[in-house]
């Protein structure tokens, strides 16, 4: 029998109600149900979460590392997009 790797799933866990899900890692699983079980058994053994999302890794659309410059650098020299760029006059009280 040929050994076929199960598809990879990315695991996102919400540690407390009110917080957003954070990427925790990935698991292999043959189907969606198993992915959820495996994520639970692998990443929440020490009481880490209250909610789990799993999504097949090949369903995630990701930015291309080769295009990092085009994607992210234009934002680097536009410091006026940060609120800290602006000096707040002393007269302004409630901002």
């Amino acid at each position: 029998m040929s050994k076929q790797e199960w598809p990879l799933y990315e695991v996102f866990i919400r540690s407390r109600s009110g917080l957003s899900h954070r990427h925790a890692g990935s698991v292999h699983a043959a189907d969606d149900e198993m992915a959820l079980s495996n994520a639970r058994d692998t990443y929440t053994r020490r009481n880490e979460g209250v909610s789990i999302w799993v999504v097949r890794s090949d369903k995630i659309v990701a930015s291309d590392p080769a295009e990092t410059a085009a994607f992210f650098e234009p934002a680097e020299d536009k410091i006026y997009r940060h609120p800290t760029f602006y000096e707040i006059p002393d007269e302004v009280e409630n901002l």
């Binding site: 698991v27 292999h28 198993m34 495996n38 058994d41 053994r45």
Partner: peptide, 11 residues
């Protein structure tokens, strides 16, 4: 047979 199943079984 799989790492994830290993953890589940041990748990």
């Amino acid at each position: 047979p799989e790492l994830e199943e290993e953890l589940a079984n041990a748990n």
